[in-house]
């Protein structure tokens, strides 16, 4: 009986010391998970998730503060990818954060624009060019369709225009897969 206790005590001392030492010595700092989440987010920077941009939202998801279903531009597919990455259940898009919409870009009605620069300041990706008291315009290829410029415009000259398919962007549809009964 004494031998057993002595042997076990020896093991306990070694293990306890090693574990205590390791817990301080090998503490892991930083979190590469945020980068992985950020790569999935659509980078619209629209803030519909309740965070000021995609990166902060990624950080919040990684910290467990935000759920994965708060990104309307990412849509269902985005949620699915996040769920895959984080090993969580797929859930429908949270309605309080908005709904999935077709991709649009902002268009400034140049007749009405007064050159106030408020939209320029609102744009998270610097996709609006212009100067004070000069007409502004949206650089369409850079616009993420976040709609953040719509609200600040004092003269309501910004509208969201859905992006139409062109021959370059047109895609073949998913083939309809159905098992019909033979005639």
């Amino acid at each position: 009986m004494l031998t057993a206790i002595l042997v076990m005590t020896g093991i306990a001392i070694v293990l306890g010391t090693a574990l205590g030492y390791a817990s301080i010595r090998f503490k892991v700092e930083g979190d590469p998970l945020v980068e992985k989440i950020d790569a999935i987010l659509p980078q619209t920077q629209c803030g519909q998730c309740g965070y000021p941009g995609c990166k902060p939202y990624a950080q919040a998801i990684s910290n467990g503060e935000a759920d994965i279903n708060q990104c309307p531009p990412g849509g269902e597919e985005g949620i699915r990818k996040l769920a895959d990455l984080l090993g969580r259940e797929v859930k429908p898009l949270s309605e309080e954060h908005g709904t999935e919409k077709p991709k649009s870009v902002a268009r400034i009605d140049e007749q009405v624009c007064i050159g106030c620069t408020l939209c320029i300041q609102a744009c998270p990706v610097d996709a609006i060019v212009g100067a004070a008291k000069q007409m502004h315009t949206v650089v369409a290829p850079l616009c993420t369709g976040c709609e953040l410029c719509v609200a600040p415009c004092p003269v309501d000259c910004i509208s969201m225009v859905p992006v139409a398919a062109t021959v370059e962007t047109w895609k073949w549809k998913y083939p309809v897969h159905e098992l019909r009964s033979a005639a």
Binding site: I5, M8, T9, I11, A12, I13, L15, G16, T17, A18, L19, G20, Y21, S23, I24, R25
Partner: peptide, 16 residues
């Protein structure tokens, strides 16, 4: 690290 090691080792021994 040293203090933690001693503390954990002590508790380990106790339980053991």
């Amino acid at each position: 690290a040293a203090r933690t090691s001693v503390r954990t080792a002590g508790i380990m021994v106790l339980f053991t």
